[in-house]
């Protein structure tokens, strides 16, 4: 190699290294937003009777809490539905941030915790009494641990994608979900049923919406560039 080529090459190397070490700009991909809705009559959610745990019964005495299997919002919308890329996924980044799953007032906060495989999460007991955390996976390893008040958070993660119901045997009404996904492209519908998945590189995707009572719905979406697509998932609800 002749010496006169060396400097330009060196410069190119230097610049490219510097560029690579700069913070990655948010992927300028497309966005899918939309709502999760239902038709028909959804089951009436029951008020939760927490009489056996006086601490919690007192906490919710003024405004009773209801079961959260089907949480409806204005305009026939559904909360706590998980929308995620189920096929054609590309450009996912691994989940490294530690998520938090809280037990407060004998309820799970959040009701649905979505995470990626191998993403760490901590389970916290904010109540003045004991809870046991019993996730019921079928593929991942199962465990069942109790957490006395005032003890450090329990750390956990799952290495296979799965939808895992979570329960507390001490307070059988307590019910939540660990949603373990292979993709970082997911969203959980808010109290108005809306969701938004950002940063999808151009491509053809299958989006699936999952609701614990009504099952799943899938739609295909093609993202061309930095566009925003709007889609609506509609579940059929039965009263019982």
């Amino acid at each position: 190699m002749k010496i006169k080529y060396f400097y330009p090459l060196f410069l190119v190397l230097l610049v490219s290294t510097a560029l690579a070490s700069l913070p990655v700009p948010p992927p300028a991909g497309g966005t899918v937003t939309g709502k999760v809705t239902y038709t028909g009559t959804p089951p009436k959610m029951k008020p939760i009777d927490m009489a056996k745990e006086p601490n919690c019964a007192k906490e919710h005495a003024a405004s009773p809490v209801f079961t959260e299997n089907v949480v409806t919002g204005p305009g026939n919308t559904l909360e706590w539905a998980v929308v995620y890329v189920s096929a054609g996924d590309q450009g996912s980044t691994p989940g490294t941030q530690t998520l938090r799953f809280d037990q407060k007032g004998c309820q799970y906060m959040p009701h649905v915790l979505a995470m990626q495989v191998d993403q760490p999460f901590e389970i916290v007991n904010s109540d003045p009494h004991l809870h046991n955390i019993h996730p019921l996976p079928k593929i991942n390893p199962e465990w069942n641990k109790s957490q006395p008040p005032g003890t450090p958070p329990l750390m956990a993660k799952y290495d296979k994608p799965e939808f895992i119901p979570v329960k507390c045997n001490v307070h059988p009404w307590m019910h939540g979900w660990f949603i373990v996904l292979n993709t970082s492209h997911y969203a959980i519908s808010g109290s108005d049923g809306s969701f938004s998945i950002k940063g999808l590189p151009p491509g053809k995707y299958t989006l699936t919406a999952w609701q614990e009572q009504f099952g799943t719905q899938a739609q295909d979406v093609t993202i061309a560039g930095g566009e925003t697509k709007n889609i609506t998932f509609t579940f059929k609800a039965l009263p019982y």
Binding site: L130, Q147, G150, T151, L154
Partner: peptide, 12 residues
Amino acid sequence: PAGAPGNVMTPE
């Protein structure tokens, strides 16, 4: 470790 997180005994 599982029976006594933070040295506090669990009921199990």
